[in-house]
Design a protein around this nucleic acid. Structure first.
Lengths: 393, 393
DNA sequence: GCAGTTCGTCCACTCAGCGTCGAAAGTACC
DNA sequence: GGTACTTTCGACGCTGAGTGGACGAACTGC
């Protein structure tokens, strides 16, 4: 596994700039970075020699001789793997992180790491069959706390058998390239930072509402992971001390009110007690209910479903209001599966946050839906991998 | 105002190292930093020439020729000014941030910036009368949100007349040196990071319980201020949606339950209704009550006072539990005036946090009292100033 | 076709930083 | 007290990275 990396910080900066801005002429690059022409030329030559950059024709003249265009190496590939509770998303991108192919496959994390990783590798193998370029790096997201330095999950509540399983090393051995492993919420946040709504924001919160509820924290442009890698775990914040008992043993956890699992439970109750005719019908048809059914029922005007989303949005908004006062972020992004409920949910969250948070903190605070949706995870994963590669060795 | 600063990053590193570690021999410095002897000697010489370093005799021999000791310039002075709601603390330190003199004076921030700043400058003037060295920098803490870049308070709730008042520029003009202004909680956190319990911790929370309640957030060794400078404002997080109405208009704010103002109100009620004989007696003597009286009453075994502290500690602990899960810090420090209640309060907070937070986040999480106590603010302020000075120009 | 502009390479020059050498200043042992 | 060894530190020559100017190549506009 010989990895070709930039040799110094200048080369690394050039790589990152070309990744984020796309192909540029040497002259434009020279305008943007503070390097003498000779030095810039020397570094670019070295990067081209090592296969990290390619030339790509000539730019339009700016009044004189045309300048040669350089771009990130054409044969650089990154893999993004987003392991969720019930599915795995795999994407293959070029060196500029454009998604070349993307495929999702159903899995159950409870089947254990061997089965899930084998499945992910198989899907990635299918994508790579159409492409002979070698992998330069891969990013992996898993639905639980991760020790980022070790590349292993630590005490993940919904992933039996994964505790301290060498996820990074297993992928690295199979792929023959550097692999980075992070929490799925963190990589989604990174995805939105790279190519979504948070592109130009350095401090923001990404709230994922899926089976559970989590929060990615981006501070000074970088994901903050906490000392044990479990920062952002807001699913078990207590939002009502008189609330229901949560699976974690505490009382009134956010996840006991909202999130995929809670919505499903509430929907089943509403269907069985007959309070919601729409949900009861759906249950009879499908034999089970999920958060998506609640979404559909709400769209269809079912009062019970609408109330569930309202109540959940308010609870979440209430918790978020405290966090907004605490973090004073420049943006809050709502993503994850349940976020597809969309604007009805957003309205509730906004209402609660704007009403309750400190005016100074909310004065200029956008609260928006994820722009990348289901792609946020894999995009963040490849960004993680490329940040690692495009760094001085 | 010609400021002498390190010329490059190497000089800046040497200054910070000598500030934090105290005087060192050139040889020891050479072992610690990765510079060739010639370069190290050249940089040290230049720093001595510019008055930033002084020589200070010779170290004990390590087997051969004795090495010359260098230390931070003897004539470097920093001023730390911690403006509180009811008093101002001023300290004068040397270049290693050792407190040379420290004085507190009663003020009322509501008297407005002109009066308070004049008072602070007068006290600092007294301290400087005994010392003819020029000021190299000053740090100022104010009890409210601050735009750090501008050096002005922004919408401070308890400081009428201070909004966007040019605090930094006023001090800088009067003192003739660079001045940095920050929130008082942030500088206390910085103080604990520099010379208190958080010395070796990079990610921690500092909770100040004074008239109000605030939290300093230190991330990757640096104070995090948020996009508007109001990060850490936890006083108005809602901890009980059925609680009392707070002065801010919301319901069940933390400050409505705990903190100096809330304790005073509760103590007055307890005294007047006769529920607490101890507090009633104290009220009759002094004509008023404060949080300190509650502390004394609790120490004297007054049941009502003990219950107040218990309840408050539990409320605060409950809120902190959520933040601990969210931030996953390496340490939580409790400071500020009410913290003098000490271990009784600490026990309640610990109980709530350890019971409610995520086990992974609390597994190795110390929760301790501030080590510097009343000095945390001024120490943090001078640290802020010195971080600014000991940086490459 | 020519003047003017822009781009890229070549090259001489500068200078920061490194390693070596030797003197200075110690210690340890006889 | 003398000798051998160790450590520190300034001086000095060397190296190599980087700079900036010069020049040729490539292009536009008149």
């Amino acid at each position: 596994m010989t990895v070709v990396r930039p040799e110094n910080v200048h080369q690394a900066r050039l790589m990152r700039r070309l990744r984020d801005d796309g192909p540029r002429s040497r002259a434009e690059l020279g305008d943007a970075v503070a390097l003498s022409r000779s030095k810039l030329a020397a570094e670019i030559d070295r990067l081209v020699d090592r296969g990290l950059l390619d030339t790509d024709g000539y730019a339009d003249s700016r009044g004189g001789r045309r300048s040669a265009i350089v771009r990130v190496g054409r044969r650089i590939r990154f893999a993004g793997i987003d392991i969720g509770a019930t599915s795995v998303d795999v994407a293959l991108t070029d060196g500029e992180l454009h998604v070349l192919s993307h495929r999702a496959a159903p899995v159950d994390v409870r089947d254990g790491p061997d089965a899930v990783i084998a499945r992910a590798l198989a899907v990635l193998g299918e994508l790579r069959d159409e492409d002979d370029a070698p992998l330069a790096g891969a990013g992996v997201g898993v639905p639980g706390p991760v020790s980022f330095a070790d590349g292993v999950p630590v005490s993940p509540p919904i992933m039996p058998g994964w505790n301290r399983f060498p996820v990074r090393d297993t992928f690295a051995a199979a792929l023959g390239c550097p692999v980075l492993v992070d929490n799925d919420v963190n990589i989604m946040a990174l995805g939105e930072k790279h190519a979504g709504v948070a592109r130009s924001v350095d401090d923001f919160l990404f709230v994922k509402i899926g089976t559970g509820i989590g929060c990615g924290i981006v501070v000074r442009g970088e994901v903050y992971r906490g000392v044990n890698g479990c920062a952002g775990d807001i699913g078990h914040m207590s939002v009502d001390e008189h609330g229901p008992v949560c699976a974690c043993g505490n009382i009134g956890c956010l996840e006991a009110f909202f999130g995929g699992a809670a919505l499903r439970t509430q929907a089943l109750t509403a269907a069985r007690t007959g309070r919601s005719a729409v949900l009861a019908r759906r249950l009879a048809e499908a034999g089970d209910l999920s958060a998506v059914d609640v979404t559909h029922a709400a769209s269809a005007g079912d009062g019970v479903a609408v109330a569930m989303i309202r109540e959940g949005g308010q609870r979440l908004g209430h918790a978020l209001a405290g966090l907004v006062s605490f973090v004073n972020p420049g943006l809050v992004v709502i993503g994850g599966g349940v976020a597809s409920i969309g604007h009805a949910l957003l309205a509730e969250i906004r209402g609660a946050v704007y009403r309750t948070s400190l005016p100074l903190a909310t004065g200029n605070l956008p609260i928006t839906l994820s722009e990348l949706g289901g792609r946020a995870g894999v995009v963040g994963a490849v960004r993680l991998a490329s940040d690692h590669l495009y760094r001085a060795a």
